[in-house]
């Protein structure tokens, strides 16, 4: 059977993609950001996942205001890189895993989570920046990726609680897939940031630190934090952090396992452009 071996959490700032694509990673401004991922790149190479289930949000690239799915699972064989207005990032296209994605959709929908199934969509920096941070500049991404897009553009995003419970349903689906795949689940976005209005530039290190602590040790309690706390404390775009709870909800310890996950890596840095960068790697035991 397939199993989830680890979860990865990371911010997905567009400027990080630009810095990578323009060869600025060694500049004093960017060096501390990328240094935070040196361990992670090596770790991913050693882990050799067969599939990455990647939770992210689209930033008005695949989905305009014509269609705003709360949860959308990418079931296509491949996904092209979106032109977000600056031209597409020079990174490989993403190869999907239609069979596992279809299995997850069928299982999760029957488990009461009404996903939107997407057979054609471009993927934006929300998905490609985490891959770049974790993989560097490969000619092809190391394994198939199942894109899972969450609406955080039009209020309300799904609640943290809903995301956490969905993570559990996704886990159940993956563990009932009868090929022995090593699957990782990634939650991306955040941490504190606000991109709009006179309060733009908001960073709340205390909130972020507490969020990381609780994500590790008390995800159940953290999942009950209401939207308004994210907006007020972590900025209007900080609400992306609910996506981390999907990945966390899929881990062993909150699904009947007896041992907490191992914190393989933890990193936090301010700033990347407008945003606080947070990153965690949790391994199942």
């Amino acid at each position: 059977m397939a199993r989830i071996s680890a979860s990865v959490y990371t911010s997905h700032v567009p400027a990080i993609g630009a810095a990578l694509d323009l060869g600025k990673t060694a500049e004093p401004y960017w060096q501390p950001v990328f240094q935070g991922y040196d361990f992670s790149k090596q770790w991913l190479k050693e882990q050799k996942p067969d599939v990455i289930f990647l939770v992210y949000n689209d930033h008005a690239n695949a989905f305009s205001l014509d269609l705003i799915p709360t949860f959308a699972i990418g079931t296509a064989a491949e996904f092209a890189v979106a032109d977000e207005g600056w031209g597409p990032r020079p990174v490989p296209k993403v190869i999907g895993h239609p069979k596992l994605a279809g299995h997850i959709a069928q299982s999760v929908i029957q488990d009461d989570f009404d996903l939107t199934i997407v057979n054609k969509m471009d993927i934006d920096h929300g998905l490609t920046v985490p891959l770049s941070l974790m993989c560097g500049h490969p000619k092809a991404w190391p394994c198939p990726v199942i894109p899972f897009a969450v609406n955080v553009v039009q209020y309300p995003a799904p609640s943290g609680r809903r995301c956490y419970m969905l993570g559990k349903a996704i886990r159940k689906a993956i563990e009932s897939y009868d090929e022995p795949l090593n699957v990782q689940i990634w939650g991306t976005g955040g941490m504190s940031h606000q991109l709009q209005g006179p309060r733009a530039g908001l960073i709340n290190k205390e909130f972020d630190t507490d969020f990381l602590d609780r994500l590790i040790a008390d995800p159940e309690g953290l999942s009950k934090m209401p939207h308004i706390d994210y907006v007020r404390e972590a900025g209007s775009e900080g609400i992306e952090l609910v996506m981390w709870l999907i990945a966390r909800g899929a881990m062993n310890d909150v699904n009947g396992g007896s041992k907490p996950p191992t914190v393989r890596h933890r990193f936090y840095h301010v700033p990347a452009s407008n945003t606080a960068v947070g990153h965690l790697i949790l391994e199942n035991n």
Binding site: Y29, S192, Q194, Q196, G197, P198, R199, A200, G201, L202, I203, N204, K205, E206, F207, E233, V270, P271, S273, N274, A276
Partner: peptide, 20 residues
Amino acid sequence: MTGMSEDEYRNMMVGGGRSI
């Protein structure tokens, strides 16, 4: 959107961002 110059805003971010 903040009424700050580009440099001022950039420096604020490098200094840890706008305080909560």
